[in-house]
Design a protein around this nucleic acid. Sequence first.
DNA 1: GCCAACGTTGGC
DNA 2: GCCAACGTTGGC
Length: 155
Amino acid sequence: MKTEPDTYSLDDLLQEKNRTTAWEGVRNYQARNFLKNEIQLGDEAFFYHSSCAIPAIVAIVEVVRPGYPDPSAFDKHSPYFDPKSDRQKPRWFRVDVQFKEKLAEPITLAQIKKNPALNDFILTRPGNRLSVLPVSVHQWQIILKMNKLKTHKDR
DNA sequence: GCCAACGTTGGC
DNA sequence: GCCAACGTTGGC
């Protein structure tokens, strides 16, 4: 799951109540379908910083509430407002995620690109613009092996 | 700031 | 349903 740290960073997540946030504002149908149909309660996800100096995976989060309608689409004052989404037939969905672990060191996009075992990873495919994208179990394990985890559960 | 790649819109 | 124009994403 990608986020621009200037807009919402890992530090922001860590300051939330229960270190939990609603992953709202996704306005891409393919990403929406992952949020709505694919993501299960208890799934883990990488928390990725994009559009910044060093794009990288910085943490792991856990889905604590699976897909449900994104109310920011109904809010005229939200930057994510979409007049074409109505409450009877919501167009956009979100999930809630909770902080789980912070990586001891970020796994950078550059590192991921250099790893031939991750050639099929959607993140590194040219022109990829999905803000929510699937990671196979195999890819997940390869990426985790690229770095040691340091937990911050007791902070 | 540039620009490639892609998604969305809307006329036809 | 096609496709040109436009907007957005996101690495560099």
